[in-house]
Design a protein around this nucleic acid. Structure first.
Length: 577
DNA sequence: GCCGTTTTCGGCCCGACTGTTTTCAGTCG
């Protein structure tokens, strides 16, 4: 039974939660959380490291004690220490922590005084008005708990970045229109361009915070005001999206933006650097004693520590501060670097627009080329192209290409990888194409070994250039087609792709973003180049490219590592296997 | 429990808001 990083992180987090409920030393709790955080954002599997006898204490936040525990988890799938803690403190209690307004102290109090262990116990106690009898809790807290239990969703409350964008854009317009507002920005994971966001963190500057906050709570989309103070407010909008607004003076804009952009780990690392130099960073600025020495811009603050500006996408404490200190920050790829899209669909299969329309839309976006990659026959949800239809398509595209200047349609296909790793079109037709992208559309649930072998066999076929949406995952809480990533040994797949001279894709569709940022980073470390393509099924979806670029940036990719930043002639050379 | 060109011991990020209490603990980000 293989143990993955997410399993290790989950167990360490569970230990942290339970220890915290027990009232353990807060720094000890934090040590477990830091370790879990480190593990969950690593691109390599700790299980592999254990197998190869590597020293886990090299990982930031992991010392001897936790390293031993990780080894135990990797080898047995479990942790004896956790079982011991659970004898004293029921594991179900950690579910209560998910309820807004309940932290470790209150959960412990509710457990001790009312014997509450589960969400059902809590609901029952709220209905009987027993919560208000606990010292430190009153009828308002009881009402809030009842309300939160009512609204509770079983699913994780994270929203896809594109959905968040639809909500945030009109809200920003509204805030900019408020009198006395000087600057407005979105911070948080949204600004770091994470694939999903939990809530939205907004920042505004202006002299009269109270008035700005009041206007904010009067925004037409506000369903509930959760808190409202002089400089800060939290509201809930449609789709349950929670939005925090913080107002500071203009001179603190940079410090506040840095603070609220996070990540938390990046911020803590930076504040520790400040402490070493006898400085203090908070959301108002950088202070030496009581004197503010920086704070208006983020650049100013990084500069104070002799660091170059670090873009939000890199602020995850995954080595960016060290790289910055050594002058080794990567120059990241931008949307402007992208010269063409390498996966799109037309009305020939399940796309909404014709070949001509897609070509025109690509040219409008300044592209030099567009790969036409309709589906092959096996994908049953759509009508794919068989060898004969594909041959006709090649002629059609070549004819259309005569009419273009400085633009070219690439003949291509999204060929289906069958369960045994073979392709559903013969090699002789695939060989005639400019580009072949291969994908899994069925049997996502093979076991890890079988799935890996299947993919490797497909990559063995010399006609294949790019493995697209490599894990097959679909993301988003409200996505009815949500699907977990297929189990596979990604390190092996990437090594194999590199060896064979083919590439993996970052699928830029916001419901996929596949490869993820962490896998992209792994590809970079292996030295494998990637393609960023949209999988557009309509002309407007060509704009998805920016979401893919965001993830590539989060994976530390510069333009060199992305194949479709090249001219067609250079790309053509790269595609030769 | 982690970590160290100040330290192997003694630190460990920091402030706003709420609710309950009456001077502040708990939660959150």
């Amino acid at each position: 039974m293989p143990v993955y990083n997410r399993d290790v992180a989950r167990i360490l987090d569970q230990v942290a939660d339970l220890l915290e409920i027990e009232g353990a030393d807060s720094f000890r709790v934090r040590a477990y959380r830091n370790a879990a955080q480190s593990i969950s954002t690593m691109s390599r599997e700790v299980a592999t490291m254990v197998d190869e006898g590597e020293d886990l204490t090299e990982i930031r936040g992991i010392g001897e004690s936790i390293a031993e525990k990780i080894e135990e988890i990797v080898k047995t799938g479990d942790l004896g220490q956790l079982a011991q803690i659970e004898e004293r403190t029921p594991a179900e209690l950690t579910e209560l922590l998910d309820l807004p307004g309940l932290g470790p102290k209150r959960v412990q109090t509710l457990h001790e005084e009312l014997g509450i262990e589960t969400l059902d116990d809590l609901r029952d106690a709220a209905e009987r008005n027993r919560i208000r009898t606990v010292s430190g809790l009153g009828d308002r807290t009881e009402a809030r708990i009842a309300r939160e239990l009512e609204q509770r969703h079983d699913e994780e409350r994270r929203t896809r970045i594109d959905v968040a964008e639809e909500i945030v854009t009109p809200l920003l317009d509204y805030l900019c229109g408020i009198e006395g507002v000087e600057q407005v920005a979105v911070a948080g994971s949204y600004r770091r361009r994470q694939e999903t966001v939990g809530d939205l963190d907004l920042l505004a500057t202006g002299a009269d915070g109270e008035q700005i906050i009041r206007h904010f709570t009067e925004y037409e989309d506000v369903r509930e005001v959760i808190s409202q103070g002089k400089t800060r407010s939290t509201v809930r909008l449609r789709l349950d999206m929670q939005v925090d607004l913080r107002v500071v003076a203009d001179e603190s804009y940079g410090a506040a933006l840095l603070y609220f952009t996070g990540s938390k780990a990046h911020g803590i690392a930076l504040r520790n650097m400040a402490l070493d130099e006898g400085l203090k960073i908070n959301e108002y600025g950088v202070f030496r004693d009581d004197e503010r020495i920086a704070g208006a811009t983020e650049e100013q603050i990084y500069d104070l520590f002799d660091l170059p500006y670090i873009v939000p996408e890199l602020r995850e404490n995954r080595g960016e501060l060290e790289a910055a200190a050594e002058g080794k920050l990567p120059e990241l790829v931008t949307v402007d670097d992208i010269r063409g899209d390498l996966q799109i669909h037309t009305t020939a299969s399940d796309g909404k627009n014709t070949l001509e329309e897609m070509a025109a839309a690509a040219q409008e976006r300044g592209y030099a080329y567009l790969a036409v990659t309709d589906h092959s026959p096996h994908v049953s949800v759509t009508q794919g192209l068989d060898a004969e239809a594909l041959a006709r398509r090649i002629d059609e595209i070549q004819e259309l290409n005569e009419s273009f200047n400085d633009f070219r349609l690439l003949t291509g296909i999204e060929v289906d990888i069958l369960k045994d790793g073979s392709l559903d079109l013969p090699d002789d037709i695939l060989k005639r194409l400019d580009i072949v992208v291969a994908a899994v559309h069925s049997a996502f649930n093979l076991d890890r070994e079988e799935q890996t072998e299947r993919i490797l066999r497909a990559l063995d076929n010399p006609t294949v250039h790019i493995l697209v949406h490599p894990t097959g995952r679909r993301i988003g809480e409200r996505n009815p087609r949500k699907r977990p990533p297929a189990e596979m040994d990604m390190e092996r797949v990437m090594e194999a792709a590199k060896e064979r001279g083919c590439f993996l894709e970052i699928n830029a569709s916001p419901s996929r973003l596949d490869l993820s940022d962490a896998y992209a980073k792994m590809a970079g470390e292996i030295g494998l180049k990637l393609a960023i393509s949209t999988d557009a099924h309509s002309t407007t979806e060509l704009d998805f490219i920016r979401y893919g670029v965001d993830q590539a940036r989060r994976g530390w990719f510069g333009p060199d590592g992305i194949v479709n930043t090249r001219s067609w002639s250079d790309l053509k050379a790269l595609l030769k296997r």
